[in-house]
Computed example of a mutant assay.
Amino acid sequence: MKDRDLILMKSLIESYVREGHPIGSKALLKHSHLSISPATVRNIMSDLERQGLLLSPHTSAGRIPTTQGLRIFVDQLVKVKNLETDALAQLKSTLDPNLETNTILGRASSVLSDMTKMASLVQLPSKPFQQIEQIEFVPLSERKLLVVLVLKNDEIQNRIIPVERNYSRQELSRMADFLNEHFSGKDLTTVKNQLLKEMIFDKERLDSMMQQAVTLASAGLDEAINHYQDFHVSGQTNLVSMATHGQIENLEQIFQAFKQKQQIVEILERSILADGVKIFIGEESGNQNLSDCSLVTAPYKLNGESIGVLAVVGPTRMRYDKVIPIVDVTAKLLSNALSMKIKDE
C-alpha cells in the first residue's frame, strides 16, 4: 500500500473508533490533512474496499474498516502510548505480593477493567504448584488409552483418550520412560507449555515414537488442566454500557460466551506461549459469540514460565493504543508480584 493510502486508512479508522459511524470522503480528507482532491480520496477508498479493508454498511458513501483493515491498523499503524506515571503507580500498589494469590489475580482483573472501561479476564493458574511425579499409559479397549498422572501430593488423575492405533505395552513403557525423564518434578502448566513447544518447534529433533509420546501426554494433560481451569471476570457492566451506545451489537451472545467458560479458556490458551501481547479482532477469535469484540491478551509468568493469561474484552473499535500497554504492563507486574510472593515464601 502507498503511504497516502495508509495515512487515509489510519485516519478513517481513528475517526471511526472515535465517532462510531461510517466516515465519508470529505470528513476523511479533513482529518487526514493530505493535499489531495476529494475525488482522489474517493478513488482510494474504493480501492481499499475492493481489497477487503473497508466496507460500506449502508447506501451512504461512508465506510468503516473490516476485520482485515483493523488487523493492518493494529499491526502497522497503531502507535502504542506509554503508561502515565499515575497509572503505573496504581498498578504497582494494586498488585501487592503480600496478598493471597487469588486476591492478587482478582485485583488484576478489577484494575484492568477500571483502567480500560471494558470487561477483563484473568485466567487462574492451572495449579502451578501441582508437580507431576509420574506419567503412565495403560492400554484399554481398541483405540483407547488410559493416561495416569501421579502428582506429588499423592493425587492420582486418570484420563481416557482416543488414539489413532493400538500400542503395545512395550511401546507405552518406552514413551512413559521418556516423558518421566524429562518432566518428572515439574508442574502441570510448565509441562503443558513444554509439550506444546515440542509439538510446534522441535518435531525434527524427536523420533516418531517420542513424537507420539508428546502428543499423547499433551492430550492427557489438556483434560487434567481443564479440571482446574477458571478465570476472574470484571467489568461486564461496561459491556452493557457499550451496547447501549451502539459499540457492541450482540451483548447476549457475549455473555453466553462468558457463561460457557471453556470457549473463553480455549481462546486464552492460544495466547499462553505468546511473547507479549496478542490481539484477536472479531472473528479471529474463532468464537461466533465474540464476533463483535476484540480481545487483547498477554500471558503472565511465574519465575519465567507462563502459567496463565489475562485479557481485555471490548468492541472491535476500541482504543488499541491505550489498551495494549495497559494489558502488557499489567501482565508484567502481575508476573513480578507472583514471583516475589513465591520467593518470599
Results as ranks from 00 to 15, higher is better:
76 Q>L: 14
76 Q>V: 11
77 L>E: 13
78 V>D: 01
78 V>W: 10
78 V>H: 03
78 V>M: 01
83 L>H: 00
83 L>M: 02
85 T>E: 06
86 D>P: 02
86 D>M: 11
87 A>M: 12
88 L>P: 05
88 L>M: 12
90 Q>K: 14
90 Q>N: 15
91 L>R: 07
91 L>C: 07
92 K>P: 07
93 S>I: 12
94 T>Y: 06
94 T>R: 01
96 D>I: 03
96 D>Q: 04
96 D>R: 04
96 D>V: 05
98 N>K: 15
98 N>A: 12
98 N>I: 11
99 L>C: 08
99 L>K: 15
100 E>W: 10
100 E>V: 07
101 T>F: 04
101 T>Q: 06
101 T>H: 03
102 N>W: 12
102 N>C: 11
102 N>Q: 14
104 I>R: 01
104 I>L: 10
105 L>G: 14
106 G>A: 12
107 R>G: 06
107 R>C: 01
108 A>W: 07
108 A>M: 00
109 S>L: 03
110 S>D: 09
112 L>Q: 05
112 L>Y: 03
112 L>C: 06
113 S>Q: 02
113 S>R: 09
113 S>W: 00
114 D>V: 09
114 D>N: 15
115 M>L: 15
116 T>E: 05
116 T>C: 01
116 T>I: 07
116 T>G: 00
117 K>R: 11
118 M>N: 07
118 M>D: 07
119 A>F: 05
119 A>L: 09
119 A>S: 13
119 A>T: 00
120 S>H: 06
121 L>G: 05
122 V>L: 13
122 V>F: 13
123 Q>N: 02
123 Q>C: 04
123 Q>R: 05
124 L>S: 13
124 L>D: 13
125 P>Y: 06
125 P>G: 02
125 P>C: 07
125 P>I: 04
126 S>E: 04
